[in-house]
């Protein structure tokens, strides 16, 4: 039986920029930033209240994992905003929206009341997007 998610990837275009976005703007906690050789870092962050989940800020570049054409296609799709990376929850969506907006985060949807609750959408520095929702969107027993 699977017990929990421990590590997941966010494919990013530039690790320095991603560090600034996730740590300084979103307020995620830096877990590890370990140089692994020229131009390569093991860079992971965690949501502030979820230290046991690490997001690997995984650079897309030509490598053993990504042949040239794959890396180029992936970067293109990320920049186009094709990839949704999940739902981030907060105590108060309006305050979080105002704070992130003040820090320069680009929203593609302001807090909007949907049939499933209030939701906003924002992009990271690479082009990946996240849904932002108040934690009580998930409190409803009908969601379970």
């Amino acid at each position: 039986m699977i017990s929990k998610m421990t590590i997941t990837n966010i494919h990013v275009i530039d690790q320095d920029s991603a560090y600034d976005f996730y740590v300084n703007k979103l307020g995620f906690k830096l877990v590890d930033d370990i140089p692994m050789g020229p131009g390569t870092r093991w860079l992971t962050v965690s949501p502030p209240d979820q230290p046991d989940l690490q997001l690997v800020l995984f650079p897309v570049r030509v490598s053993k994992m990504f042949p040239k054409e794959v890396a180029e296609s992936l970067i293109d799709l990320i920049k186009k905003g094709v990839f949704g990376c999940g739902v981030l929850t907060c105590k108060d969506i309006f305050a979080t929206y105002e704070e992130l907006k003040a820090k320069g985060v680009e929203f593609i949807k302001a807090p909007t009341k949907e049939f499933y609750g209030t939701e906003a959408l924002f992009k990271d520095d690479s082009g990946n997007y996240f849904s932002l929702q108040p934690i009580n969107n998930f409190d409803n027993e009908n969601n379970i």
């Binding site: 590890d32 140089p35 692994m36 050789g37 093991w42 490598s63």
Partner: peptide, 28 residues
């Protein structure tokens, strides 16, 4: 970390990246 950087990276990721004990981690 400086002595054994790979000990802090899940083995599956190290393998995917081609990082090995013989890699040059001078920056570390």
């Amino acid at each position: 970390i400086q002595e054994k950087p790979l000990a802090f990276v899940p083995k599956c990721y190290a393998f995917m990246h081609g990082w090995s004990e013989n890699s040059n981690f001078e920056e570390v």
